[in-house]
């Protein structure tokens, strides 16, 4: 997962993202690629001294959006994850589920082309898990490649046609990448990357 969101360099093999070979890319060239990736970390990685609003707004501000263009989308996203009234709360005052929702809101706020989520439903109730699944599916239909690492069989079975890579004891059980959760769905513009 770290290789996917460009937090590590591979010791062997190669990394290609968005049609670019990034295995040996100069570190100065990586930030523009990282801005095209949304990441939901298992441990949330929220900045403790920033409010939920500022945490969610961070990708937009780093991308250079003006404050006028930040306010609306962030409020909307916080409302969507059910945290409209917790916008000014700091992460330590939020529950695990609330923190996870803030982390998800931060990951998708700038409509990433690649969304990498590590156990995104681990701390949320089933209703929120369904909504997240809907969000991921919607993003995928809009062109976002969604990569989810999960132990949640329910989440897997609820995503028909998703390509699956099964890992067991650190070994990829299906290196061909053809394992699918039936029935497969047809993508109008071809399969996502």
């Amino acid at each position: 997962m770290k290789l996917l969101y460009l937090a590590q360099r591979p010791t062997r093999g190669r990394i290609a993202l968005f049609g670019e070979e990034l295995t040996d890319a100069a570190r100065d060239s990586l930030p523009p690629f990282r801005r095209r990736i949304g990441v939901v970390f298992q441990d949330f990685r929220l900045i403790r001294h920033l409010s939920a609003f500022d945490n969610v707004a961070l990708p937009l501000r780093i991308a250079g959006a003006s404050e006028e263009k930040v306010e609306g989308p962030v409020r909307e996203m916080l409302a969507w994850v059910g945290l409209a009234d917790r916008a000014s709360a700091r992460p330590p005052t939020l529950s695990g589920g609330e923190q996870q929702r803030v982390a998800i809101a931060r990951a998708v706020i700038n409509r990433p082309e690649l969304l990498v989520a590590d156990e995104p439903t681990g701390n949320v109730d089933s209703d929120m898990a369904q909504r997240l699944l809907h969000l991921f599916t919607s993003l995928n239909r809009l062109g976002t490649t969604v990569v989810v690492a999960t132990h949640d069989i329910g989440l897997i079975s609820a995503t028909p046609g998703a390509q699956m890579i099964r890992l067991e004891n650190g070994t990829m059980l299906d290196p061909t990448g053809t394992l699918r959760n039936p029935p497969p769905i047809a993508y109008p513009r071809g399969e996502p990357e």
């Binding site: 937090a7 930030p31 523009p32 801005r35 990708p59 780093i62």
Partner: peptide
């Protein structure tokens, strides 16, 4: 360090 790692992960440049 943590804040910097998060910022880098989101796409912040060294200059930012």
């Amino acid at each position: 360090r943590f804040t910097i790692d998060v910022m880098h992960g989101i796409g912040a440049t060294d200059l930012q």
